[in-house]
Nucleic acid binder design. Sequence first.
DNA 1: TGTGTAGGTCC
DNA 2: AGGACCTACAC
Length: 563
Amino acid sequence: MRDPRSGRGEPGSQCSPRVSALSIVASVPSMTSGMMCPICPSELSLELIDEYIKEKEAEDPPNQVIAENLKLVPRSTDPELLSQCRALEISPVNDTKPLEIPLSLCSHADLGPSERMQSVTVGVHMALPCDRRSEPWCIKPAPHSVASCSFSSLSSNVLPVNDALEALLLPKPELKIIEQPKQRGMRFRYVCEGRSAGSILGENSTDQSKIMPAIEVLNCDNLKEVKVMASLVWKDSPYRVHPHSLVGKDCHDGICEVTIKPKLKRTHSFHNLGIQCVRKKEIEEAVEKKLKLGIDPFNAGHWKNHEEVDMNVVRLCFQACYQDSSGNTETLGPILSEPIYDKKSTNTSELKICRMNKETGQCGGGEEVYLLCDKVQKDTYGVDQKRKRGLPDVMGELSGPDPHGIEAKRRMKKPTYKDHLFSDLTTGTVLPAFSQLCSMEQPSTSEFSSGTRNARFQAEDSFSDYDYFSKSQSLASYMGAQTSEVKFSDLNGAQEEDLQQKIFLDPLYRYVESIPENLLSSNNTNSSNIAHLVGSSLRASEYQEDVASFLPQLPHEGNMKQT
DNA sequence: TGTGTAGGTCC
DNA sequence: AGGACCTACAC
């Protein structure tokens, strides 16, 4: 068999049609056992190809570059092969039209129909549009790149013909991100913090198993080495260079450079890659420095209004370069990771529930659960999605026809607010912020305005944004999937009207919905219909962290306390 | 001028 | 790693 790296093979052996920088079209109406493959080292066939190219060169001068660069060396005079090779046809090639080589001489007697046609169009290599000429991945595109550098570099003076054809027919190397960075959870660090900037984790990383962002270079088996560079760019187009820097292992000047030896390993995991942020007043200086070093993957250039840049989010940008078999430098990328958000920033970190007034609810519904949250965002992260789920518009109520909740109170009789707080002291944790509100009787949303200033602001934030509760979606989804139908009449003592009052925390409400009928028998008393949020023995601050762990155990009965 | 908040620093 | 603190700035 043919060695994919050396391009050497045994005459007469079978080989698969290769595709590479040129489009190779194998149109084989029929295969004859014992035929020779022109791609394998069958010198006579190469001679014929050479002759054919010369003919085409005469007919088609614009493709002269091909004929100049591709000169084939005859090595065989096998008459049988000669007759087969006469069937070879090569069409002229230009930037848009693929070179077609019918592989009618192949000895693939056992090829299926789908294997007889192979065609891949690979255009002109995308050179990086930047001015970092000193760096290998910043090569300006040639004015008239014809079917890539790897093709134009073919020269009989430099390469044996098999290598030349190998270069033509191998798939083009490709740069790929195989492990995206974790988007949230890492804090950008200032230089003044005098510490490591930590490590960007991979999206699949867990506490038990650390996984780092990783890239892979595909189709690079024949390459000695591939240099990979990572830098930081804006989250959005035009993906300008970001003032923040990558720091850590293999980093310098705000970028990270590593060398991959594909014969040993085609992948690279970026360990100890941190993000060091610059102060706002240092943005311009940082950007200038990078641009002077030629770090500008998308050639997005200079930008004057430094307020434009979002300092709380970056993308990793990967580029790679390698030398082909003729010594020409080829580039891969740039490719972009998913955005990485600064954990410290309120605007980009995940919402966190710091405190909640209770973790249990009446099965009859109609209760309110109050959450105090940290990292409440004022952009619209996740809001639209959750609003579509039909959660109540609490802030909207304040500007609605019943801002004080008087009409709402008149319509329903619900437990007093004190009841909410103290109805189940065995599990609920009444926290200071709420204790300031305890004297109020069942407040409507607007009544929070009459609380202490601190509590009011916390409450407003919490209520307006409680639906950010990131885990609630997965919880709600799970519960949605588990929901069994509950007839209102089955709920002992509960009125349909009560049930139709959605409580604030949607997952809890769905939880109530999901109560199996056998737990809602007429023997139950009103007070027994208490739905407990699983993990309610946790302090509220611990609750959020634990949601994920209890989700898989959520069959109804096991998570429902009867008190 | 008071207040809240984002940015930045310290521990 | 992440909370606390300080400061500058916007409103």
